[in-house]
Simulated scan of single mutants.
Amino acid sequence: MDNFKAISIDDNHINLMLLQKYARKLPIDIANYTDPVKALSDACANEPDIIFIDYMMPEMNGIEFIREFRKQNSNTPIIMVTAVSDDQKIKIDALEAGVTDFLIKPINSIEFIARTRNLLEMRKFQRIVQDKALLLQEEVNKATQKILEREEETIMVLGKISELKDIETGHHILRVAYYSKLLATELGMSEEEIQVLFYASQLHDIGKVGTPETILLKPGKLTFDEFEIMKQHAVNGYKILKNTSSKYLKAGSIVALSHHEWVNGTGYPKGQKNKEIPVYGRILAIADCFDALLSKRPYKERWSFDEAMAYIVHEKGIHFDSELVDLFIAKKDEVKKIGESLMDL
């Protein structure tokens, strides 16, 4: 094991030199400080293996130093150097502040070496435990990342189930995911929420696996009864995904159920209004509808980008959340890039 790093703090240069001389028989490199404030800053930034500190110093005494250092570091051993005349209260205060051991002035070299060696041995095992903990955490992180990657891959596969019935849906799903990610980012969501929505959004139409192809691919307008059957895909998607432990699938159930709600309450299946609609659903409402307008479907031709944008603006506060519409329009150049880059996948 490499030499240990130590710092020694004392406003008396002779005391620092004496302690450094005694330490030559030990595997430690000592950095000396006469300024406890500077020493505290360096000790917090670069964790030492052991600290030697005098009690009486200007600006900050030894106990004050220990209290401040222990706010950030509870492991590094600290030896306080005190005079024989120092009262018992100082030692009690030092122990309460977090001191590990004491040395009494004048320092005996044999005692100094014995006490320091014992604490360095303790520090060695601390470092071993810390290294093992870091190694274990690294392995846990790797395993967790692999699980997440598999889960994300599974979700992407599930999202493509809709392609089995509708050849236009696959590209639509991916574009909607990126439009949703863009809106979530502009809304200020956390990185985790954005990631969850990106994958959950790809499940918004999974309930269509239960919708007859005669309805999905009908070239004309749906009858009232046919539309009632079509609307069931929102509930069906929710039922498929709701009883799961995955955060992605749980979010997917919310997306599936709420992405056809309108902020004025005329959407389906619940007729929710405004903020009653989960934010994931309000985001998907814009992303899904916008891309559907740009896509050719059995019952319609593609709209132009400008026509689709104009429709989103027209439906602000009616179909779509007003704040989200403003964010979407403000990022129209990026929206266009997403559509163009994924149109021919």
Rank of each mutant, 00 (worst) to 15 (best):
F290N: 05
P106G: 10
S341K: 15
K71D: 10
E139A: 13
G210F: 12
N118T: 15
V157S: 08
Q202N: 04
E193G: 01
H13C: 11
I7C: 05
K208P: 03
K275I: 09
S245R: 12
I215L: 06
E168Y: 01
L222D: 14
L293H: 11
K142L: 03
K38M: 11
A114H: 11
V335H: 11
P269M: 12
A251F: 07
D166R: 02
E111K: 13
K160M: 15
M156G: 11
G317L: 02
W262I: 00
L174Y: 11
V255S: 15
Y55C: 06
L119N: 03
I318Q: 07
Q202H: 06
D306N: 04
L197Q: 07
K38V: 11
K21P: 00
E228V: 06
I206V: 13
D93R: 00
F125H: 10
I161D: 00
V325K: 12
E47K: 15
T185S: 15
F125I: 13
V279D: 02
H204I: 12
H172Q: 10
I167Q: 05
E301Y: 02
T34A: 12
S253C: 03
E153M: 08
R175K: 11
F112W: 08
F4R: 02
M309N: 08
E226S: 14
P106Y: 03
Y280V: 02
A292K: 09
N73H: 14
E149Y: 04
E168N: 06
R70L: 12
V99C: 05
N264F: 04
M122K: 03
K247T: 11
T244I: 04
I79V: 03
H260I: 01
I90F: 00
G62A: 04
E261H: 05
V335L: 14
